[in-house]
């Protein structure tokens, strides 16, 4: 821990890692809250796993066919957009098939990714890197990309806060008040997909899912307003990424996995505590 604090002052990679966690928290706090209150976090999970297929394909083209302009993030973007459009249309038009379609995209997306990664020569790239990322290897380009994502999400999230909340709470009533429900729903899915793409390439797929749902899950226990849930989950998310980084640094544990375990343990403790408290009262 002390080692972490002294090294933090000297090494840019550690400062970048810390900043990555904090920037990721803003996007995850806001988008995570919207998708949890709209009860579509499984959609974000589905998109996140589908992204592996795109990243694998892009990597294969990059390495085998030397298409140097193609980076994993481009593949992730294409596959996330395809997944978001398919899921969005199915959930708006044929609600009952939604879970089957998501499971299919999830499984096929990951399988495609694994095939491409296996057929790509060189051992520098491995599956674990894509699943858990490496927060210690974030470049300053990645940081700018994250900052841009945050700016977009904060601007849209604040400007259309009332509309998003109304659409999440009662879609039918929102439509009657003249809100274009489909447009806001697809915008929300699009922002979720974009968050998944950017964060999946920076911190890994499993980390995105953990950061989008676990802090929000805890915040939901203590929030009576959507904006408060966003604020609490953003703060919690920053605490988890920072403590994950600090605690894993000394003993050289994987930072991403440590963060997820801390967040998961906190979620388990708070929900159990809340449950015990409500049982004790009744």
């Amino acid at each position: 821990m002390l080692q972490f604090l002294t090294d933090l002052q000297h090494y840019t990679f550690l400062q970048n890692a810390l900043l990555t966690g904090i920037l990721a928290s803003v996007a995850c706090g806001i988008i995570g809250t919207y998708i949890v209150v709209r009860r579509i976090s499984y959609i974000a999970d589905g998109i996140a796993h589908t992204v592996l297929g795109g990243m694998g394909a892009a990597l294969y083209l990059h390495k085998v066919y030397h298409w140097h302009g193609i980076l994993p993030i481009h593949g992730a973007l294409v596959s996330a957009i395809i997944a978001a459009i398919i899921i969005g249309l199915v959930s708006l038009r044929a609600k009952q098939r939604e879970d089957t379609v998501i499971s299919a995209l999830w499984a096929v997306g990951m399988a495609v990714g694994i095939v491409f990664i296996a057929r790509t020569p060189g051992y520098s790239e491995d599956l674990m890197g894509y699943l858990f990322g490496n927060i210690l290897m974030v470049s300053s380009n990645d940081l700018w990309m994250l900052a841009g994502l945050d700016a977009l999400i904060v601007a849209l999230g604040l400007l259309f806060y009332n509309q998003f909340v109304a659409v999440c709470f009662d879609q039918e009533f929102a439509r009657l008040r003249g809100i274009n429900v489909e447009a806001f729903y697809l915008l929300l899915l699009g922002l979720a997909a974009l968050t998944v793409v950017v964060l999946a390439t920076v911190v890994g797929i499993v980390m995105v899912i953990a950061l989008l749902t676990l802090p929000v899950g805890i915040a939901a226990l203590y929030s009576s307003a959507v904006w408060r849930m966003m604020a609490i989950s953003t703060i919690l998310c920053a605490v988890f990424t920072t403590s994950g980084l600090a605690l894993s640094y000394g003993p050289d544990y994987p930072a991403g996995a440590t963060t997820i375990i801390i967040a998961g343990a906190a979620y388990l403790c708070t929900t159990t505590f809340k449950w015990a408290l409500s049982r004790g009262r009744s």
Partner: peptide
């Protein structure tokens, strides 16, 4: 959703949209 995080005032305000 009965667990939706909103106050009584927040829900009533949705009537003012549009």
């Amino acid at each position: 959703d009965p667990q939706f995080p909103a106050t009584v005032l927040d829900v009533a305000l949705m009537g003012r949209l549009g």
